[in-house]
Nucleic acid binder design. Sequence first.
DNA 1: GGTATAAGATCTGAACCCTGTACCTTTGCT
DNA 2: AGCAAAGGTACAGGGTTCAGATCTTATACC
Lengths: 234, 234
Amino acid sequence: MSRVVASITLTQGVAEHLRSLIHRGEVGPGDRLPPERVLAEQLGVARMSLRDAIKILQDDGYVEARRGAGGGTFVTELQRPVETWRARMREQVGEFDDIIDYRIALEAHTARLAAARRTQSDLAALRAAIKSLGRGRGVAAFRQADSRFHDALARSAGNARLQTAIHSARGELFTPHDFLMHEGPVEQSRQDHQAIYVAIREGDPDAAESLMRTHIERTRLQLREIVFGRDDSA
Amino acid sequence: MSRVVASITLTQGVAEHLRSLIHRGEVGPGDRLPPERVLAEQLGVARMSLRDAIKILQDDGYVEARRGAGGGTFVTELQRPVETWRARMREQVGEFDDIIDYRIALEAHTARLAAARRTQSDLAALRAAIKSLGRGRGVAAFRQADSRFHDALARSAGNARLQTAIHSARGELFTPHDFLMHEGPVEQSRQDHQAIYVAIREGDPDAAESLMRTHIERTRLQLREIVFGRDDSA
DNA sequence: GGTATAAGATCTGAACCCTGTACCTTTGCT
DNA sequence: AGCAAAGGTACAGGGTTCAGATCTTATACC
């Protein structure tokens, strides 16, 4: 019987939402958020609540605000947030692997469902996401393209709960800048996505699930190396 | 860009928490909740907030309050809530299957992890849960024993995110009273649990995952029959 | 260079939510 | 009869959220 019921404020909720968008790469360095009045309207919250949320992200170094015409709220280069995230992952042992395991649970089965249910337009969205991983340079572009693919896949499965949970799990991760030190990971990722796409197009649930699992396990290793250092000591 | 950020009140959160406990069978018909002052303390909320939550459950027919010494807040026979739930599942097409698919994603992988990580005390908890499915009669006893098993399993995987998500998904389902019309389902469930237990004890992730998947698929069919009627028309 | 404009920054008051504390009422038990 | 253990009520203070008005700053354009 009984466990604590946490109560987070609207402001915190909005801050987490925006932070997740940035972590997932849906908005990246240099991008401008919509004007406060507009964004508040879109999110369905009062402008004050949104401002408080933005204040939190400002303090954490995610965004900075510029006044005047042509001003707005801009995403920073994210160096400080990335370092903070990396430090947290190093401290809270097991947290990193828990998030990855959670992702595997959700996304492997999602890939399975997608293979059975995808429509033609789902396939088109997946193809587009793979294509954009080829173009663009830099972490920001990678984050975004990667996010697009996994999001398109979640959509294809047609299950709102899975999609929400996947967003939440992915929003807890954060690809550091030095992910692209070598060209390897990006190309590897592209190949993984391509293989998953084929399995889904061919309607092969077992392959889709298995490939997704392998893909995320590979991500685990690559990220782990960057976060914890090559041989665990540093 | 942008999606709505919902803000639920503490009261609603507490109500959902308690509703989930009842749906999962952790407390059943006739059980008494802890005294308001105690429960409020345990949950970390003000007594008023808890009372408002209980008020909601009262209006929905989940609990009823009796005053005086030896009084308290008691779980009802749950007939009305079950009917309400069944009606909602019939109306919101796809909702039922989405919850089940979500459970499969979470619990199949959880079983896999559990097979690799379970400790001796995890195994003992699983055995105890299986045993209690053999005893007890009635839906309430079934709900509870079933819940105990799946909960013990989630614990064995040692991943807080998975455990929370599984609770949330299971809390959205509700085993109706006529689940026990025939003796079949309960015995079937017991055998499924037993087989999953063996796979986990033997440290066989593939078997554990596959058996869990099959088990929940079976649950889907049995529940569907009860919720939607035998041949889909009715 | 001045001015219109598009932003962020501030302020206010009403409504609601949550908390803590005190007190009332009912009812079973000794 | 009286005590104790419950739920039921009341209220004041503080925090959140909202809607709206107003102020300030910086750019872009004439």
